[in-house]
Design a protein around this nucleic acid. Sequence first.
DNA 1: GCGATGTTTCGACACGTGTCGAAGCATGCG
DNA 2: CGCATGCTTCGACACGTGTCGAAACATCGC
Lengths: 240, 240
Amino acid sequence: MGSHPNIASTAALIADPARAIMLVALLDGHPRPAGELAYCAGVTAQTASSHLGKLLAGGLLAVETEGRHRYYRLAGPHVALTIESLASIGPVEIVRRRALTREAQKLRFARCCYDHLAGRLGVAVTQGMLERGFLAIGEGKRFDVTVAGAEWFGRMGLDVAKIKPTRAGLARQCLDWTERQHHLAGPLGVHFTRLLCVETWVRREKTSRAVEVTPKGWRCLKEHFGIEEQAVAAADLGKT
Amino acid sequence: MGSHPNIASTAALIADPARAIMLVALLDGHPRPAGELAYCAGVTAQTASSHLGKLLAGGLLAVETEGRHRYYRLAGPHVALTIESLASIGPVEIVRRRALTREAQKLRFARCCYDHLAGRLGVAVTQGMLERGFLAIGEGKRFDVTVAGAEWFGRMGLDVAKIKPTRAGLARQCLDWTERQHHLAGPLGVHFTRLLCVETWVRREKTSRAVEVTPKGWRCLKEHFGIEEQAVAAADLGKT
DNA sequence: GCGATGTTTCGACACGTGTCGAAGCATGCG
DNA sequence: CGCATGCTTCGACACGTGTCGAAACATCGC
């Protein structure tokens, strides 16, 4: 029993075409009798029975016996979510063989995601705030601003108490697509990014979402977070 | 012709144990070279290469070549979501015929893992440190001690600067098999646990690895971390 | 250049499992 | 009771695919 022993075997249950068809057929939540599912999947009743038994044992289906019919349905919403989630993964589209353009590289390095800082720089800054205890991982994809954090933002000229949280909270964890790491979003992220512009740590490009760090910006980033230009630029690959 | 032709084949990709292990290993978002993934999965390099190629073609992974290494990572958050979602489906618990023995329950509740605190209590304490910003998630399965954290440990009587890190670091994230959560390990974890014994927050059983929390311990845990006895005991149901 | 290391390709083998025919239970109807 | 319907169990077969050894390819360091 490893940590996730289920996942391979669960996936194996969905991996069979006949079973996958049955599961998809049950996505609407309506229970269906075994025979109908057999017909959907285009297999005989014996085969379908075998499949349904496995799905049942695997915890993907539930069954209710009514007379001589046995009605199968998905075991719960989490199963439906998993099926739909699987459907979102597709074979790679036409691969872009060409290297990233200069513009794309700048975007990857630092950019605005809506109105907050993203890209490697966004991730690095957020990481710095976490390491220094200004932020802490909160419940439900939120960051919590610590006491030390509130003081620091205050010294920067940002009164955290004055920032109005949205329903999703004051500071959210936004998952960066390309970096696969969280960075600071939400009202606090927006205000902070605006502050960086005003203080001329960074300059936003007019034509795109790219962001450029000023010399002063690098100095301050190093001073406050120990972030160095080369380190961010080189943070290409994680490592052990 | 189904509207979801991919789902079976995508699931088939995750269905292989070796591939599943690789995918789980990549869940943290950090790219890893092929060789390391081969080692994780316990297969030879040839086999791993075949698997990685399939996952790549299936759109589950992305790859970046650097020198003679090829770093693989999940193709995107949607893949991570799918994996985690799959993990939420479990075979119908083969009902524990016999309830856990009294001793096993104590072990599950709190125990020592080598020389640091594990079990539900270990997870809860670590979570508390994260929430209060004493620790932060670091690179490579490490925790970083924040400034606030160093102060707190100091007040507790632990001079973090004096603790010698091993090569793996000062504070490591140790994954608890039964709780499926990380808890504090590494030299800091060992010293901290020793401190808890000295301060009589907890008492180690002589005969086993179980740990018992004293009344004073519960008082202090509540005061420092807001941890209540019932909450830890009741944390039976999983997760997110 | 050469050897060492990391990764992929090729070929062959063995095991797992999805399939169906036939038969066995269970339920419902006359 | 006897027959039909719905579903499951049993047994046998064939195909797919995960595995590794051997070898080719790529890159790095000297």
